[in-house]
């Protein structure tokens, strides 16, 4: 079967879908996740540099041991029971988002990283990218043209996303 066509999230995504605390991955079901707590923040801008408000950012990541809470991970039985690995944030009037999370461990064969997706009015297909903490050997990072890799490396846990134009964030053809 043909997978259903994507569409923009539009300008009217209900604010109540950004549940209170959805951007805090360090607590799940009232219990604290293991590992180092970090705060990831950044701004999201369109081509002319305008900051975008109420843009939706979602992240998905491994736990402190590099394990995904998902049955496809061979180690998932050992995943931190108090860590879901998913979060959602909306950008504020300055175009800034913020997540409180656990620094992910490096999954097998990968550098430590966090998967990002952004959804907004006028974005017709979800834009997916990946944030790294440092440069290194990683199959996804190495698939990016070398001169653009630097845009995927967070600096002091700051990860800005430029949707188009100068310093454009690399997005993946998924």
């Amino acid at each position: 079967m043909i997978s259903t066509a994507e569409a923009t999230i539009g300008p009217f995504f209900p604010p109540r879908y950004v549940d209170q605390g959805a951007n805090d991955l360090t607590v799940f079901d009232g219990r604290k996740a293991r590992g180092d707590v970090i705060e990831i923040r950044g701004r999201v801008m369109q081509e002319d540099g305008t900051a975008l408000e109420n843009l939706i950012v979602e992240i998905w990541q491994a736990d402190t041991q590099g394990i995904y809470r998902h049955p496809a991970d061979p180690r998932h039985a050992q995943a931190d029971a108090n860590f879901l690995g998913w979060g959602r944030a909306a950008t504020d009037a300055q175009g800034s988002y913020c997540f409180r999370t656990i620094k992910p461990g490096a999954p097998e064969g990968r550098l430590a990283h966090i998967n990002f997706m952004v959804m907004f009015s006028g974005i017709m297909r979800i834009l997916k990218t990946t944030m790294y903490f440092e440069e290194g050997s990683d199959p996804v990072l190495l698939s990016v043209p070398s001169e653009r890799r630097k845009f995927l490396i967070a600096k002091n846990n700051e990860f800005n996303i430029r949707l188009r134009g100068e310093n454009e964030t690399p997005f993946f053809d998924d």
Partner: peptide, 26 residues
């Protein structure tokens, strides 16, 4: 809005890894 908010550079092809072939099921 579409010409301002969608990438100009070609999207990067990658082979999916465990990271993209897992996801939040809960």
């Amino acid at each position: 809005q579409t010409p301002l908010r969608n990438p100009k550079q070609p999207l990067v092809k990658r082979a999916p890894t465990l990271s993209e072939l897992t996801g939040p099921v809960e």
